[in-house]
Nucleic acid binder design. Structure first.
Lengths: 353, 353
DNA sequence: TTGTAGGCGTTATCAT
DNA sequence: ATGATAACGCCTACAA
């Protein structure tokens, strides 16, 4: 690890000008085969790696896209962590970026310093994917004046920005429809996540709408709230059971709360799905290993991450194109916790391979 | 999203020189309060974000650390995916980096283009954390001549590089010791991961050593191999059962294979842990939800990621310090699949909160 | 096919 | 407290 060598040294060692070195490294034309060899040899010899900053400065392209995500847990916000799916989204983003030779810069905005980090990151990238709740609307606005931004969330498109998200409403709607139509449940409860989470808000909206459509009564707010965590879900269910007799089905805002719900119901001697049905959202890995396997809704998180970066890169290449707003479909995953008897299927079919 | 404005515009609008603008933005001294206000106002006004590349070029510090990880699945390598724990490591790295105001650049090295990506990334960062199996030794060597590298793996330190990893041997050793001493098992089988995975190799080494210590016979290679996946684990167990009568205990190289094992054993009507004990490694989220809850070894993946970046940043600041090699301890997590009856405890205690 | 020279937007070093 | 002005390492017309 000695001082980084520069293009000048490579040029000198191979007896050509820096322009030729640059050409060999990138253009692929404009030099003889012999020259090429000499340059490549000299480069390898020195262990030279072109300076990203210098390249970025000269070409006005960093070759980097950024992803900002929230890290709520660290900031002490009530037992809530950075959502699990963040990792999936990041992986997806990485794939889409890598596909075009770009790299992905990630940063969690936590606490007060998160804002500064966001600005710092903005300066280092060609474009930014901002996940819900990671940056104040005001800052998004400011930053987007110098760097293209794609908002990763679920609200209907914010004005002026591209945005991509999953169909939360439709997902919950499908679950409710299944619960009502297939199982004939009429008394459903909803356990929400953090009140300010767009995901949670959208899912509850979907719940309300579906119940309305089915002609069933609905509350104005979730029957209980559990902050999207297992402990939170457990607590919410305990509160729920203390309040009223068990509903036919408990629709949880995400899988983790549903898992917490299952544990509490078990200790309360309420059989699932016999006496109470339970559903989740997200389809995290644990979902199909639960007892009973959890009926839930799968979000294509990785695909969403890929799509977000694709949209971002398009905008980077064409700042004047029309804004776009992508809503990707979700998929109902029926297992046992809703009352269905899909034995053998889910969670075992793969054993056949 | 108009053309990015520059420090010159900010300087002009606030009636000062670019030097002063720079000072206001970073130094924190060398200007009057009034000047400061004007500059800040102008900057906010323009939505100006200092150019990372320009800063990096001038200051010789990108403010970015890179993390390279393998993505085996995509390259078609036998039913194997990018290890689950990669996400955790990345999160840890992100924390450590953010703590000092740096951002993290991630890139998966898959297929042939992975190599190019690696070099490209190397040029953009101040230092690089290279996870096992993501880059050929040869390339690590080449790149490390211009950028500090920390190898994230588990082999005994490679020559010349800092390296950090978990105590795989010790972890498996603890499991075996428990199985032998507490439960009196004498016939243990080991299911390995990919043959070339350092993790897998180290874990099997730990297995052998522990059996030796216990005075029990050992094979030269794993009894079966499952590529670190559920399907692979299932397949391995089927092969194992076809070969010989069930062992007392099956020590799996990771949790996912153990989960596959549980499924196969269930369909084979072999009770766990009644007739066969099963253990895993990693302690992924699903582990404690399994039936029975999985006895396993927890690796502090996030901490490892943090540590790797800390070590890296130290080296960036002091290239001549002595090489260091960090091995972090693992922790035995006893649940039910080994035969222990820790009912109520694991996986439920949190309900009390 | 190859070389020359002028930016790119900051930081940092001198002056003032 | 503030302003000029060299670097910084590379890309890219423009020449040759």
């Amino acid at each position: 690890v000695t001082a980084r060598s520069t293009i000048y040294e490579v040029a000198r060692r191979s007896g050509v000008s820096i322009a030729t070195v640059s050409r060999v490294m990138h253009d692929g034309v404009g030099f003889s085969a012999a020259t090429r060899e000499r340059v490549l040899a000299a480069a390898a010899d020195l262990g030279w790696v072109p300076s990203g900053p210098a390249r970025g400065l000269a070409s006005r392209r960093a070759g980097i896209v950024g992803v900002l995500f929230p890290d709520l847990g660290a900031s002490g916000e009530a037992e809530e962590e950075s959502p699990l799916y963040v990792d999936e989204v990041i992986r997806g983003a990485e794939r889409a970026a890598t596909a075009v030779g770009d790299a992905v810069l990630i940063a969690a905005t936590r606490g007060a310093s998160g804002r500064d980090l966001a600005y710092s990151v903005a300066g280092k990238v060609d474009g930014l994917v901002v996940m819900a709740r990671s940056l104040a609307e005001h800052d998004i606005e400011a930053i987007s004046r110098s760097v293209p931004i794609v908002v990763f969330a679920n609200r209907p498109a914010r004005r002026g920005h591209d945005c991509v998200g999953a169909d939360n409403r439709g997902g919950v709607g499908a679950i409710v429809a299944h619960l009502v139509q297939e199982h004939g449940y009429t008394d459903l409860a909803f356990v929400g996540g953090p009140a300010r989470s767009p995901d949670s808000v959208e899912r509850f909206a979907g719940f309300r709408k579906a119940l309305n459509t089915a002609g069933l009564p609905v509350l104005d707010s979730p029957d209980a709230e559990g902050g999207f965590t297992e402990v939170g879900g457990a607590r919410a269910i305990r509160a729920l059971l203390a309040d009223r007799r068990p509903p036919h089905a408990i629709v949880c805002g995400n899988d983790e709360m549903a898992i917490g719900a299952l544990a509490v119901l078990r200790t309360a001697k309420l059989r699932v799905p016999g006496e109470v049905a339970v559903t989740g959202f997200d389809d995290i890995a644990s979902a199909r290993h639960m007892r009973p396997p959890l009926t839930t809704v799968r979000q294509p998180m990785r695909d969403l991450g890929e799509e977000a970066v694709r949209v971002l890169l398009e905008r980077v290449n064409d700042p004047d194109a029309a804004r776009c707003s992508v809503v990707m479909p979700t998929q109902l995953v029926i297992r046992r916790s809703c009352g269905c008897r899909t034995r053998s299927a889910e969670g075992r079919e793969w054993l056949a391979s």
